[in-house]
């Protein structure tokens, strides 16, 4: 399945939103990492990042390389919250089994109700 990734950072740099569709495998994980680095840089220019929001409704699969990008994100911004919005059960399962669940918060919508 074709992979696409888009992102935006809000005005004060406190919220960065990344939307991914398709599959994050070892190749597309690089795009994911670049996108993360780029939103981090942008938010730093504008202020402090508080929430990294990953819109994952259309994400079918995330590989070990993709999960590793998450570790990188958490290590880079330990004070920021990482939200998984509408992630599929299989993806949350992988996070659970590999001990990464504590790094993210799974939610059905963002902003939080």
């Amino acid at each position: 399945m074709a992979f696409s990734i888009t992102s935006e950072v809000n005005k004060d740099g406190s919220i960065a939103t990344i939307t991914m569709v398709g599959e994050v495998d070892s190749l597309t994980a690089r795009s994911f990492k670049h996108e993360i680095e780029s939103v981090f840089q942008e938010s730093e220019k504008l202020g402090d990042l508080k929430d990294l929001v990953l819109e994952l409704d259309g994400l079918e699969f995330i590989s070990s390389a993709g999960l590793r990008v998450l570790i990188f994100s958490k290590q880079s911004k330990p004070d920021a919250n990482i939200y998984f919005v509408k992630a599929k059960e299989d993806i949350l399962d992988s996070l659970q089994k590999t001990g990464l669940m504590h790094s993210v918060t799974a939610v059905d919508e963002y902003p939080l109700p």
């Binding site: 070990s64 999960l67 992988s94 089994k97 590999t98 001990g99």
Partner: peptide, 19 residues
Amino acid sequence: YAATGKFGMQVDELKTLIK
């Protein structure tokens, strides 16, 4: 032995169990 072995994540899954 890892549910995530098909993703090559067996090391992380085992470490998570030990933790």
